[in-house]
């Protein structure tokens, strides 16, 4: 008796990747997740559970918070981390669901563009923020802060 001749398998996985990209992506999702818990829950606690809660949030409140470099750095870190974490998460989902190369490429370009755009716009707002714009109704401003800054 002769052993049956083996045929080449009908299903072959496409393109091997021998890089460490997916491993680092996995580690990043967990590390950023842990940091995001601290950042997001402190953020929610300060904004919603201290002082007047949700009713206190207006232009003056944000101006008061961003007068301190701590909250500027805090919000920037939260913005960048959440966007990269969410963006990378969406990349995983695109890899799962998009079947054709064309669709995968298109969605990833759209994703990268929107992530970059939101990070750039968000950072611009944080760093170019003017707490006391000229000609604004003083009732809307953080009067204490603007007086300290000599703008009112």
């Amino acid at each position: 008796m002769q052993a049956p001749e083996l045929k080449a398998p009908a299903f072959v996985r496409s393109g091997r990747s021998r890089t460490q990209v997916e491993r680092w992506s996995w580690i990043f999702m967990r590390a950023s997740g842990v940091i995001l818990i601290v950042l997001i829950f402190t953020h929610l606690f300060i904004n919603l559970l201290t002082g007047d809660g949700v009713n206190q949030i207006d232009f003056a409140f944000v101006a008061g918070k961003w007068a301190s470099p701590l909250w500027k750095v805090w919000d920037l870190t939260m913005l960048v981390l959440a966007m990269i974490h969410g963006g990378n998460g969406m990349r995983l989902l695109i890899n799962d669901y998009a079947r054709t190369t064309w669709l995968r490429k298109t969605l990833k370009v759209a994703l990268a563009t929107s992530v970059t755009l939101i990070i750039v716009l968000g950072s611009l707002v944080i760093f170019t923020f003017d707490p006391c714009p000229e000609g604004t109704d003083p009732a809307l401003l953080n009067i204490e802060l603007c007086e300290d800054l000599g703008r009112l």
Binding site: R13, R16, S17, R18, Q20, V21, E22, S25, W26
Partner: peptide, 12 residues
């Protein structure tokens, strides 16, 4: 382990 480090491997 190297085979499972693939992008279709354990990290999925």
């Amino acid at each position: 382990l190297e085979i499972l480090n693939d992008r279709a491997g354990v990290w999925k």
